[in-house]
């Protein structure tokens, strides 16, 4: 199995742990990831500036992916996944925009391909690899862990676009965690946003959104928070201290990418999974796994 992979900006420039763990885990699952030949912003921040340009950037990703000759594209970032999915939808509906973008791409020597299937890590593992084979491959069950999940907003909304999981009752990430033997908890704030998109204009508000959620989880006494989006990683892991401070709390909540957790269960070395790069106290969680 071969998949093209588009990392987006956040993963390539700071969320290295997510990239490393995806690369390692997919290797272990016998999925070869083929990096795109050039870097390209998905267009998300440009949506606020000029929509057509954002659509160009997003559809350019599909054109570069087309050059790999593969029919599946893995997009591990929630925001990129949404932006590309929506831009693809707009391309199919807005004929004028379609013409404009296709001709621009042609000038660049690129060809648009609307038939590439866009995967996120979550639905690829859940729908394609399957819970059973994950259960089977996991050598080190994570029994006894009590974890919360945060799927993030943009891979579940909005349903009319066709998203990775149910908008109101997303269960796939939970089931993937449970497949490794850990327990997941339901909590009232589960679908609340991490706030990352506000970092451009209102960083304090952004941090307090993340802070409120971390505080609630800390009070719930979970062993850790499992995420699958680099934006959420930035807010809950990298900026946890600042986030907690905005809501007057001190927190020590381990935050871990699902692929890191899966990597642990697959017996991949911690360094290779980038676990030393997490800024939150993941050692609390690692200790519980090793004992």
């Amino acid at each position: 199995m071969k998949l093209a992979v588009f990392w987006g900006c956040r993963i390539l420039t700071s969320q290295y742990a997510y990239e490393m763990s995806v690369r390692e885990v997919f290797k272990k699952l016998n999925v070869e990831l083929v990096d795109l030949s050039e870097a390209n912003c998905c267009g998300d921040p440009i949506k606020s500036v000029k929509d057509s340009a954002a659509n160009y950037l997003a559809n350019r990703v599909l054109a570069i992916a087309n050059a790999t000759g593969l029919d599946g594209l893995l997009v591990p970032c929630n925001r990129c996944h949404f932006t590309i999915s929506e831009a693809k939808d707009v391309m199919s509906k807005d004929k004028n925009l379609n013409k404009k973008i296709e001709s621009l791409l042609k000038e660049e020597g690129l060809a648009y391909n609307s038939h590439i299937k866009i995967w996120h890590v979550i639905d690829f593992l859940h729908n394609f690899v399957g819970l059973d084979s994950i259960k089977k491959t996991a050598q080190k069950p994570l029994n006894g862990l009590r974890l919360a999940t945060h799927v993030g907003c943009q891979i579940i909304r909005y349903s009319d676009l066709g998203r990775v999981d149910d908008a109101e009752n997303p269960r796939k990430l939970d089931e993937l965690v449970e497949a490794l033997g850990a327990k997941t908890v339901d909590y009232a704030e589960k679908l609340d946003c991490c706030g990352a998109a506000l970092m451009y204009g209102h960083p304090n508000s952004a941090l307090s959104l993340a802070g409120a959620k971390i505080k609630a989880l800390q009070n719930l006494g979970v062993d850790g928070l499992v995420i699958s989006c680099p934006d959420c990683g930035l807010m809950f892991d990298f900026r946890q201290k600042d986030a907690a401070a905005t809501v007057g709390a001190k927190t020590s909540l381990p935050v871990i990418y699902y692929t890191q957790l899966l990597g642990l269960a697959l017996n991949i070395e911690m360094e290779k999974l980038g676990l030393h790069l997490n800024q939150s106290p993941v050692e609390q969680l690692l200790m519980k796994i090793s004992t």
Binding site: Q154, R157, S159, A197, H202
Partner: peptide, 10 residues
């Protein structure tokens, strides 16, 4: 000030 969480769309 929009966080683009898409809840309103959903």
């Amino acid at each position: 000030t929009c966080v683009t969480c898409l809840k309103c769309v959903q």
